[in-house]
Design a protein around this nucleic acid. Structure first.
Lengths: 215, 215
DNA sequence: CTCCTGATTAAACAGTCGTTCAATCAGGGG
DNA sequence: CCCCTGATTGAACGACTGTTTAATCAGGAG
């Protein structure tokens, strides 16, 4: 009964390290079993991946609430990868986000909801400016935040296959200064670009926009 | 002599649509030839991909200067994909950025250099605030911009395999309002977070930082 | 016409893939 | 003790993979 879990854990490690194109026999060998046994327990390779997805998502969700983060995905990942036991799952997550499956969608939605909560709490506390469209803003920030980390990971992660958490910390340290600067004082010197856009496009997220481009 | 180009173009289309795991015989069939001929012309599958990379990079680089963009990767891609002839290359680019190879690195570096130029010009013109570390800022913005678009693409691109340029335009329209808002008025209500950080970390990009955490 | 080079093909090769099958083995309930 | 269920294995299967090889074919040079 512990064998199935051993296979699943080995699959998470191997998939995270070498991608989902790796053969079933390699995963089986990692777990000390045969390829036939893997499908005996999980039915198929896709089902094995689904089992990995479910487990990783469940563990990360449970562990995420314990991690104290300032809201950036990279710092969350760095903090989780710091616990040696969770590092393979973070690696699996990155791989899964790159491939883009159901796990990726679920996780992104989860992180997006988190971002929305963080931002709303910040607005409530008076430290974050209110937005014309809070949902669009949080979605935008989440996409940029996760996507940026992912792009960086896909380019710099294979450099040092070991010390995995350190890589995320380095990335965090690299982006924190410009991010704080941008978030504190913006990028444009005045509001003219925003005002021009708002003049040109009549309140995109507004309720009633029943006059597209008639006359 | 035109056959090799036909094979390369078919490979760009097929790789972009189905990923690089697709078989050589499928690519060959798309070009109306045999798998053997593909390797006769290119040597191997990897060499074929390298040829695709070179061609796509050369074309996109040449065409990019003609495209009038406001600096975001999504708008550049949307504008390029609008020309039906370039759409497959944009698709190939997205696929390549997701896989993370030499093409991806080259393109990201290229776009990053562009971002740096745009920002410097904006600062010069007085419309963009100067930064404490212009290079770090442009790198940060480029990563976020490209990565966000990429994450969105990996999740929403397979929804409508046809009208490809429209998808990028939709994404642009979705992120433009919150982006303009963020760039115009920032995210924090005051500079306290930035000041706290600058107080805590003594000028990260500064030249002399020879007192880490001694006493 | 002859020769030769390059394009092109069909077939074969060696390998890996996921999956299936029959067999073996251990262990608990009747 | 016997039977049955589930774990486990090794081998096989068929379908792919990228690549190689031999053969055929067209066309220009001598």
């Amino acid at each position: 009964m512990a064998t199935a879990e051993r296979i699943r854990d080995a699959a998470i490690v191997r998939f995270g390290r070498d991608g989902f194109a790796i053969g079933l026999r390699t995963v089986a060998a990692d777990a000390g079993v045969t390829a036939g046994l893997v499908v005996h327990h999980f039915g198929s390779k896709d089902a094995l991946r689904r089992a990995c997805d479910e487990h990783v998502l469940a563990v990360i969700r449970a562990e995420k609430t314990k991690a104290v983060t300032t809201g950036t995905a990279a710092m969350l990942f760095a903090q989780l990868a710091q616990i040696e036991h969770f590092a393979p799952m973070v690696r699996y997550l990155v791989r899964s986000l790159q491939s883009g499956g159901d796990l990726a969608s679920a996780l992104v939605e989860h992180l997006m909801a988190d971002a929305q909560r963080y931002l709303a709490a910040g607005v409530e506390a008076g430290v974050i400016r209110p937005s014309r469209d809070p949902e669009a803003r949080s979605r935008f920030l989440a996409y940029q935040n996760i996507g940026g980390m992912l792009l960086w990971a896909s380019m710099h992660l294979d450099d040092h296959p070991d010390d995995f958490s350190a890589a995320f910390r380095r990335y965090s340290e690299e982006i924190t200064p410009p991010a704080l600067e941008l978030f504190s004082q913006g990028l444009f010197v005045d509001r003219s670009m925003l005002d021009d856009y708002l003049m040109y496009v009549p309140d995109p997220p507004s309720a009633d926009d029943a006059a597209p481009t008639a006359s």
